[in-house]
Amino acid sequence: MIALLMRDLRLAFRAGGGFGLGLAFFLILAVLVPLGIGPEPQTLARIAPGILWVGALLACLLSLDRIFALDFEDGSLDLLATAPVPLEGAVSIKALAHWLTTGLPLVMISPVLGLLLFLPSEAYLWLVISLAVGTPALSVIGTFGAALTVGLKRGGLLLSLLVLPLYIPTLVFGAEVVSRGAMGLAVDTPLALLAGITAGAVAILPFASAHVLRINLR
């Protein structure tokens, strides 16, 4: 299990692994939005929580199809499925590796982008916390979508269509935490709900992912 995690991380960081693509995308989005909306600090501050969350979500989406597609193409997914590791565990590790290479960097860079979008100072803490709590759910849900579409020819586009609706609750509660934080309101209700979704997704979805993966390898 640890070996699988280390391998996936190593692959991501090696040349051509695609690490940093999501980060770059997140950054570009934070630059494009003011260019499209206009430079008024009040307007940007008002929409910053939502933009940052939508940006994180799309940046996450960008790297989802790599979770299984590469392993599927070179045959190691078949080998992994016949190896003496439970597929549910392998799927969870894959999701964890995706979070470590995509979600965690997004969490860390988000305050800088908040600065670009004039996020109110009260909200920084909540931005980081909400992303830290919510992005694992994005990775786990995304892994499920990737498992569903592995081996399909037009998988990439379909993956977005399948996964984005599943991201809605996470997005709503995550952005709500930041907006409320920005307005100085209590954030515990949306934060608790966000944590609940993450916990539920982490606990249950790997079983669904492993199940559909087995079907796809049949």
């Binding site: 499920f144 569903l148 399948l162 609706p165 599943l166 809605i168 609750p169 979704i197 669904a208 079907i215």
Partner: peptide, 13 residues
């Protein structure tokens, strides 16, 4: 499986 998972998330949404 998508229908099952989707139902849960539809209710959550």
């Amino acid at each position: 499986v998508l229908c099952l998972v989707g139902s849960v998330f539809a209710v959550l949404s």
